[in-house]
Computed example of a mutant assay.
Amino acid sequence: MDTSLTKSFKIPPASLPIIPVAFLLIVVPVYDQIFISFTRKITGIRTGITHLQRVGVGLVLSSLSMATAAIMEVKRKVVARDHNMLDAIPILQPLPISVFWLSIQFFIFGLQTCLRT
């Protein structure tokens, strides 16, 4: 996939795991200050929702993340087929699709990680 941010700057592929961390830095304060406060008023539970409910929501988000990854893989393969790049070497010839398409599943993964904390 194309890791170009600008014409002169490319994101190193090894740095891509920073995307879920960045989302986590945004989601955790929102979760803690807004979601927990709101659900605490409704349920009367100090943590907002029970641990079993957290596990259930985490499992649903995990499934949603994997489904999003599958959809993205189908999109990636369609782009590769349309550009005759099914057998191309990814390092030498990246696909003409932005790596930021992966940020959707990374966002869902960040939400799931937020519930584990």
Score class of each variant (00 low, 15 high):
Ser4His: 15
Lys41Ile: 09
Pro90Ile: 06
Val28Leu: 09
Leu52Lys: 14
Arg54Cys: 05
Ser37Asp: 15
Val21Asn: 01
Arg76Glu: 03
Val79Ala: 10
Leu16Pro: 02
Ile42Phe: 13
Gln105His: 06
Thr113Asp: 06
Phe35His: 00
Arg76Ile: 02
Ala70Asn: 11
Gly58His: 02
Gly48Phe: 03
Leu61Tyr: 02
Leu111Ile: 13
Val60Thr: 14
Ile18Glu: 01
Gly110Asp: 07
Val78Ala: 11
Met66Leu: 15
Leu111Lys: 01
Ser62Arg: 05
Pro20Arg: 05
Pro96Thr: 07
Gln33Lys: 15
Val21Gly: 03
Tyr31Lys: 07
Leu64Gly: 02
Ile97Ser: 04
Ile11Arg: 09
Phe109Gly: 01
Pro20Val: 02
Phe100Thr: 15
Ile26His: 02
Asp87Trp: 10
Ser65Trp: 10
Phe107Leu: 12
Phe107Trp: 04
Asn84Asp: 13
Ile49Asp: 04
Ala70Arg: 08
Leu95Gly: 04
Thr6Ala: 01
Cys114Gly: 03
Ile104Glu: 06
Val78Asn: 10
Lys75Pro: 01
Thr43Ala: 08
Ser15Gly: 09
Ile49Asn: 06
Leu24Lys: 03
Thr39Pro: 03
Glu73Arg: 09
Glu73Pro: 03
Leu59Trp: 05
Val28Gly: 02
Leu59Ala: 08
Val30Cys: 12
Arg81Ile: 11
Gly44Tyr: 06
Ile71Asn: 07
Ile11Val: 15
Ser65Thr: 13
Val28Arg: 03
Leu115Pro: 04
Ser103Glu: 09
Thr47Met: 12
Thr50Leu: 08
Ala67Met: 06
Tyr31Gly: 02
Ile26Asn: 03
Phe100Pro: 01
Ser4Glu: 12
Pro90Val: 05
Gln105Met: 03
Thr47Gln: 12
Arg116Tyr: 15
Pro96Asn: 06
Ser15Thr: 10
Lys75Phe: 03
Gln112Asp: 12
Leu102Arg: 07
Ile26Tyr: 02
Asn84Met: 08
Ile49Tyr: 05
Val30Ala: 15
Asp87Val: 03
Ile49Thr: 05
Ser62Phe: 10
Leu92Gln: 14
Thr50Trp: 07
Arg46Lys: 13
Leu25Asn: 00
Thr43Trp: 08
Leu24Arg: 02
Pro29Ala: 00
Ile71Ala: 13
Ile19Phe: 07
Met85His: 05
Ile108Ala: 05
Ile42Ser: 09
Pro20Asp: 02
Phe35Cys: 04
Ser103Thr: 07
Phe9Gly: 06
Lys7Gly: 15
Val74Leu: 13
Gly110Arg: 06
His51Ser: 14
Ile49Glu: 04
Phe106Trp: 15
Cys114Pro: 05
Thr47Ile: 10
Tyr31Trp: 12
Thr113Pro: 00
Ile108Arg: 01
Ser63Arg: 09
Phe107Val: 07
Ser8Glu: 12
Thr117Ser: 12
Leu59Glu: 04
Arg54Trp: 08
Thr117Ile: 14
